[in-house]
Design a binder for these strands. Sequence first.
RNA 1: GGCGGCAUAGCCAAGUGGUAAGGCGAAGGACUGCAAAUCCUUUAUCCUCGGUUCGAUUCCGAGUGCCGCCUCCA
Length: 479
Amino acid sequence: MPLKVYNTLTRRKEEFVPLEKGKVKLYVCGVTLYDELHLGHARAAIVFDVVVRYLRHKNYEVNYVTNFTDVDDKMIARAKALKTSVFDLAKRFSADYFRQMKILQVERADHYPRATEHIKEIIELIKRLEEKGLAYCRDGDVFFRVRKFPSYGRLSGQSLENLAAGARIEINENKEDPLDFALWKKAKEGEPSWDSPWGKGRPGWHIECSAMAMKYLGESIDIHGGGRDLIFPHHENEIAQSEAATGKQFARYWMHNGLITLKGQKMSKSVGNVFTLSEALKKYSPEVIRYFFLSAHYRTPLEYDENSLKEAASSLERVYNLFERIRELRESPKKSFSEELQREREDLSKYLNEVEERFTFAMDDDFNTPSVLAVIFEGIKKANLLLQKEELLDEASYQLLLDLEKKIRSIGKILGLFQHQEREKLGERERRLIELLVKVRSKLREKKDWPLADEIRKELNELGIELEDKKDRTVWKVK
RNA sequence: GGCGGCAUAGCCAAGUGGUAAGGCGAAGGACUGCAAAUCCUUUAUCCUCGGUUCGAUUCCGAGUGCCGCCUCCA
């Protein structure tokens, strides 16, 4: 079954066919380096991280480019407010970005181009547009003639008339038409600027993406991604500029991730309801945050609330509990082949035969990660069912359990989940101390000294050490 | 006002033209000295009204509600 991708351009799921067989050119709009990352940025990063991992899993050679906007109005305003330079701001927040992405286990993109490092390419692209009569300079500003690009509005489903009718009052009187947008902005006093054929200035926001995507990926790319809120005007403008300049289709598939909402509203600086990534990371592990994002389909809006994060944590617990149970069996002797386990064994075995196909089916259907998780939990249930009869466990059953764990981990690798090997590595001395306490407690239990035994369990629990009494032994784990 | 999207159990969330995955939570039960973990059972007239159909939650139309975009935004 082929991979199907929802294409914003056509508003349909379409079979994914790359321009060049076996290769994928992917460009995703990144962040503006003017403030801390919030959960919305994290979601976008994780969504496309999974897309890339899956494409690579399918043996596509992926060239993944995501940019940094390191000069624009907000950067300038923010730098001023913090009494620093745009350059320092960019340095600080890009370092922050890489640090947090690492924590979230987001794999590195192949290129992270920055606007200020591609001024030459940007100027060249604007010149091409100017030569074709699609751009005009007025008093140091350069604008794009939107009406010269007839299919403008296709991505956002807007007609030029509607856009014109809905257009807000434009401040800039240099524009021929209110719909026109800036390709190049004349520098104001004290602003960072670069020399250009139109005088000192800096690039408009949209042009950098066109120029950099073309530089690293070529004039036509396979997938262009970003948050839903970028559809208009950013992506619409990118298409106009790029296609007007080259005469070629800019991107074949446009993928947009849904936004994070808080109390039903889009999380954004302007609404003032942002929850930063670092705040979230103080309360929840990176894996919990990843799980939370992947538990919803990437295109739907996702409401941030504490309960959902706690749910994610509990769900992950269930997975790791199973791994822990399987690990517990590593050294215990296996019984001889048991007929009694036949049903559970067959059930799990059947599941193992199908799981890869079901995983692929779900992912091929526009990266349906919630379905993937459901498939995984079915397997977990089957394994637990087999473990119900732990005392009969034979070698064949044990092997099936190992296979299951391996399978879940390999699928998890594509999602960036389920990779922890052991819960927290404790020091040797600490471990032996715990084992000593467990041993003492076992003796107390033999003597039926329940109050004291329970107290030890309770206090260890408060220290994050969880004890579970099995039939013949006590196991412990770090929470 | 225009364009687009969404409405599934207490909550989160997939999905299908033939009465609905999974997770979390809750209740009852099994196991346990008690817990924990695990298992079993229970927990959905799929927003409303029309239409198409043998049959719709799934398709079409209208309505209602919510959200996004039309201005910077992942």
